[in-house]
Amino acid sequence: MAFSRKDWSHKLDNALWAYRTTMKTSMGLSPFQMVYGKACHLPVETEHKALWDLKLLNFDFHEIQSKRRNQLLELEEMWLHAYDSSRSYKEKVKFYHDRKLIKRVFTPGQQVLLFNSRLKLFPGKLKSKWSGPFVIKRVLPNEAVELETPDNDVQQWSWVVNGQRLKHYLGGEMEQFSTIMMLVDP
């Protein structure tokens, strides 16, 4: 039986099983192990089920009680291990992310350019990814900056942005470039 793209729901159970039984590097465990505290066994692996049933029927209550207590302790230990693994994984990812960030210092009254993230949706070769210049009204904690439109605008408004989306405006370079282009291209 051949499946097409519209029959995706027939493969959903298998995909979920594969996801839940796959080891995740961030946790060091699979989601199945996190929930049930043990590795999953495929139906093929349970061919000796009759032997398992015999062992289950011939049990000692105190032995089973101590075994269950140990299983719960092992499960808690696995959770702690997964928590530690996840925390160290997040620290590594944060370190690599923070390493790429550029530390910029902004002061009120300074002119800056704002990165225009909408251009990723509608790219253009010659469109600038930076809009502005804008004037910094005040600097807030956690690298947040409140911007306002320049004084010469009729309708003046302000908003708060992340400082990583800003870069210093080196005043005059854009005007000089446009003046040179006007001289070259009559």
Rank of each mutant, 00 (worst) to 15 (best):
K38E: 05
F106E: 00
G37R: 04
A82S: 07
E91P: 03
S88V: 14
V112K: 01
K167P: 05
L126M: 10
S158D: 07
H48N: 11
P123M: 05
L101G: 01
Q110F: 12
E91V: 09
N58V: 13
W130Y: 14
D84Y: 13
V154W: 06
D153N: 09
L114I: 04
V93S: 03
E146H: 07
F115K: 04
L119F: 12
A39Y: 00
L101Y: 10
R138Y: 06
W159H: 09
L42T: 12
D53Q: 13
I64R: 06
V145M: 06
F95W: 11
V145K: 04
K55I: 15
L73A: 04
N58Y: 12
G163E: 03
S85E: 11
G37S: 06
L119C: 10
G37T: 06
S128C: 11
K92A: 12
D153W: 14
Q65P: 01
W157Y: 15
L80M: 12
K120P: 03
C40W: 13
V35E: 02
D153T: 11
K125C: 03
M34C: 08
F115M: 07
P133F: 11
K49N: 04
P43D: 00
Y89S: 02
D60T: 10
N70D: 06
S85M: 15
N58H: 13
L57G: 03
A82K: 02
I102C: 01
L101K: 14
V145N: 03
A50L: 14
N70V: 05
Y36N: 05
A144T: 11
N58P: 01
Y89W: 13
V139H: 04
A39G: 04
Q155I: 15
C40I: 14
K100T: 13
K49G: 02
E148C: 15
H168V: 15
Y96T: 15
V160Q: 08
A144D: 09
E74Y: 09
W79Y: 01
F115H: 05
Q156M: 10
T107I: 15
V135P: 02
V139T: 15
